[in-house]
Simulated scan of single mutants.
Amino acid sequence: MTGRLAGKTAFITGAARGIGRAQAVRFADEGAAIVGVDICGPVDSVQVPPSTPEDLDETARLVEARGGRIVTDVVDVRDVNALRAAADRGADHFGGLDIVCATAGITSRAFAADMTESMWRTMLDVNLTGVWNTCTAAIPHLIHGGGGSVVLVSSIAGLRGLVGVAHYTAAKHGVVGLMRSLAIDVAPHGIRVNCVHPTNVDTPMIQNDVVRRAFRPDLIRPPTRDEFAESATRMNMLPVPWVEAVDVANASLFLASDEARYITSASLPVDAGATQR
């Protein structure tokens, strides 16, 4: 532990697995206490297997195994009152909040003209309004503490268009707009707000038959991991099919730390060059 976040507390949504878990573990490695929340259950219109309470327990175990401190809550980011209660409990437990990572998100696929209203609304509710809810729930604690850092997890879909995910792309572009305006609003309080933009990340959100089939429509059977990787590599400039969750966590750590003390309203791609293809 090198202590880049020593004495700080991070509020992280989507903490049960994937990027959120990686942020929790990586931040704990650097001395932060963690308030981790996740829905730990299914979301309507989403076919990707959901996170579970056991996943969130595993995040807590991993943090504590590194000597870190963590409290967890099962919360849906669409429920702003529940988020506020979780943020309040975490702040009371650790004596405040200093960092916010709005990481929770979902994915689903359909061409825009074929998409149901439910798919559209659910995507915007989770991936955009859920980010706003997270910010409104936690930022008052940062203001009370005299400053801090907010990291919003967008996507390469927040910087470019992608086929078959118009709702996801709209939500992730919206996160960038929210970041830019929010950064102006909270700058007088010493709070910085930035986005990270991953390409595909090797997490359960992409490593499932639903997403793999979308990348390999030429195959009748479910694609293997290697067959998926072959197609996914074409998205990126560097010869890799995806990045690891820790790569996104490392970028988030930089933005959350004092090393980025004068960086705000910035978009940081962690994309293996995908936004330049």
Rank of each mutant, 00 (worst) to 15 (best):
P49T: 06
H144E: 13
Q47I: 06
S118G: 05
D29C: 09
T264D: 08
M205R: 11
H197L: 10
G130Y: 00
R212M: 15
I12N: 02
V150P: 05
G95R: 00
D98A: 02
G145E: 00
A157N: 12
D226Y: 08
G130A: 07
I19G: 03
A24Y: 01
S149A: 15
T116Y: 06
V126I: 14
L162I: 11
E64I: 10
F94Y: 03
P223H: 12
V186G: 01
S108G: 12
A112C: 15
S181M: 10
A170F: 02
Y168K: 04
A6F: 09
A157G: 12
L128E: 01
T224L: 11
T122I: 14
N194G: 10
V201I: 14
A91Y: 00
L83M: 03
E227K: 10
R4W: 05
V211F: 15
L128I: 07
A187M: 15
N250K: 13
A86W: 00
N200Y: 14
D44K: 09
L128M: 07
A232Q: 12
S252W: 09
R121A: 14
F11D: 00
C101W: 02
E58H: 11
E54A: 11
D98R: 04
A187Y: 10
G147K: 08
K8M: 04
A266D: 13
V240H: 12
V193H: 00
V77E: 01
H173N: 11
E54N: 10
D79W: 04
G3C: 12
V210Y: 12
P198D: 02
R225H: 14
K172V: 09
G41M: 11
G174C: 09
G130I: 08
P239I: 10
I156M: 14
V270Y: 11
I184F: 10
G36H: 05
A28K: 02
A22C: 06
M205W: 10
P217K: 13
P223S: 15
I263F: 07
V131G: 03
Q47D: 10
Y262T: 07
H141I: 02
V46G: 07
M205I: 15
L128W: 00
A32L: 05
I99R: 01
A91L: 01
A138M: 02
T233Q: 14
P222Q: 14
A112P: 13
L238R: 07
T52W: 02
I106R: 02
S155P: 10
T59M: 06
V193M: 08
G95H: 00
